[in-house]
Amino acid sequence: MELRKYITKRIIQIIIIFFVILTVLFLLFRLAPGDPVSMMVDPDMTQEDAEMLIVQLGLEQPLGMQYLIYLKNFFTGHFGFSFHYGDPVVDIIWDRLPNTVLLFTTSIILSALVGVFLGKIASWHKGKKVDSIMTIGALVTHTVFLPWLALILIWIFAYKFGWFPINGMISEEVWLDPEAGFISRALDVMYHMVLPLSTLFLIHFGAYLLIMRSSMLETLKEDYILTARAKGLEEKVIRDHHAAPNAALPVVTSVGLSLAFSINGGALTETVFTWPGIGRELVSSVSQNDYPLAQACFLMIAGVVLISNLVVDVLYAYLDPRIRY
């Protein structure tokens, strides 16, 4: 019952935040310098052509009217038409979203699991070689410049060794082959996912490792760990059943928080690997002043962040009875 009330409260908060974001986004794009039409025209086009484009894109309307249309488009779930694609924005988003979700959630889950696992080990061997190697490794990969790392991985594993494709999400050889079934197509996607996933993983797992490590070290000082030890429990049980669940709580929060920050890295990774996701669409639509698409991409990301924060909160409540009850 308590949990339900808590979730309801959080959902109401999220809806309010979402509307603030909705409005801020609209203003941000309209006030930011740049003119969508100027970027679409070439010297063959006359003034008249440009004016027609403006009307066609709905940019001749006063700002207030544009905002109302924007709200209407949002509430009808339509989001308008992309300036460049001409397709309904919602179609484009739905087409790209699964790709981003696939890459992103896999990388977050993988890096969180591995980070927590390694952080646990590092804390257990505090001050030893294992710990130093892991800590330094985590710091290095976490702070490295992402596009650089991505290009290095491409250069080594895709170009020099030729183990993986340079970029993309699928290869035409497999998808054009009428005999290729679901399994080989799924494998093809996984095969293409290895490098972008590794990039995101390398960038993110270090943070989880470091958080888990310091959290573990704090937890190990707690009295209940002493109790557990006095009870004569095995070390493994103490570490995995008593220390780790408590120590993992801050990691769960940080997954939620880091999600918002890792969008940036996601967009870069998608761009470098030409992964057909929201992040890449976001980068290109912003640079081309494709307002409807860029707004929808931002909204989608804001939505994903808000919802995943909610999930994290609920998960936290589930993991920590002090919040649940």
């Binding site: 183990w163 993986f164 290869s171 494998l187 093809d188 095969y191």
Partner: peptide, 10 residues
């Protein structure tokens, strides 16, 4: 990594 790599060396 090696297995997927070798499987797909097109």
């Amino acid at each position: 990594m090696l297995i997927t790599g070798s499987l797909f060396t097109v």
